[in-house]
């Protein structure tokens, strides 16, 4: 199948996802367009991860439609994802990035240079020969980012990239996210950290029980949430 010119806008229309008897996403309609990062927030279990995987094309919705640049079933050539707990290939850091480059059909001759650039971009210069699975959580998260960026995506989906990281590691990831966004790559990321949402978000999507409660520009959302659920979420009172 020939990929379209662009994966953006990435649109979910009335998307539902079920797992057995559980409704994980329930009629979600949301569009991600070029611009500042979109941040998904919501309590644990609200459907953030499932929304990101569906947007990546890894989950087939039980109802509704997902379109990339207006087309359905587009193979993941112009988008990439970093999972909350990325799996490291049992190879060196450089070989992990090289693998992603080869999967994106980057010619072999160009790969060594690209590997160096990508490792530098995520602050892992000099880690080339390190076994990926022996690196720390924060380093693995950044290596996964480098792998995702190796595919030169238009849209980068990040699932709680800073969960369970210490403040220094969190800052390192956020710096990379800013740098990536500044290059014009659309970021869609989930977080349960409201401070992080404030620092990074252009717009915010609040999910609760598999539904979109509120979607709007970040400054408006944080200054004057439109719904009672959003106010309660920010007060720490909205639970699953």
């Amino acid at each position: 199948m020939l990929a379209p010119e662009t994966d953006l806008p990435l649109e979910l229309r009335d998307v539902s996802v079920r797992a057995g008897a559980t409704q994980i996403l329930d009629g979600v309609t949301v569009a991600f367009s070029p611009g500042a990062p979109t941040v998904l927030i919501g309590p644990n279990g609200s459907g953030k991860t499932t929304l990101l995987r569906t947007a990546m094309g890894l989950i087939e919705p039980s109802g509704g439609r997902v379109t990339w640049g207006g087309r359905e079933r587009v193979p993941p050539m112009r988008r990439a994802i970093v999972f909350q707990r990325p799996a490291m290939l049992r190879r060196s850091a450089a070989a992990n990035v090289e693998y992603a480059l080869s999967s994106a059909d980057v010619p072999r001759a160009q790969r060594p240079k690209r590997v160096e650039e990508l490792l530098a971009l995520v602050g892992l210069s000099g880690f080339d020969a390190r076994a990926a699975r022996r690196m720390s959580g924060g380093e693995q998260q950044r290596l996964a980012l480098a792998r995702a960026l190796a595919r030169e995506p238009e849209v980068l989906l990040l699932d709680e990239p800073t969960a369970s990281l210490d403040p220094a590691a969190t800052k390192a990831i956020e710096d990379v996210v800013r740098a990536v966004a500044a290059r014009g790559i659309k970021i869609v990321m989930s977080t349960h950290d409201l401070g992080e949402a404030r620092r990074l978000a252009g717009d915010v999507v609040l999910l609760h029980r598999g539904r979109v409660i509120e979607h709007g520009p970040a400054d408006e959302f944080f200054a004057a949430p439109k719904t009672e659920d959003a106010r309660r979420f920010m007060a720490g009172e909205l639970l699953i």
Partner: peptide, 25 residues
């Protein structure tokens, strides 16, 4: 089980998956 999502996200086809798993294991 560990690699499945990553390889799917990197659009790796069946032959590539088998080769990757054999090599890494």
């Amino acid at each position: 089980l560990e690699y499945r999502d990553e390889l799917a996200a990197m659009n790796v086809g069946p032959a590539g998956r088998v080769a990757t798993l054999l090599w890494d294991a």
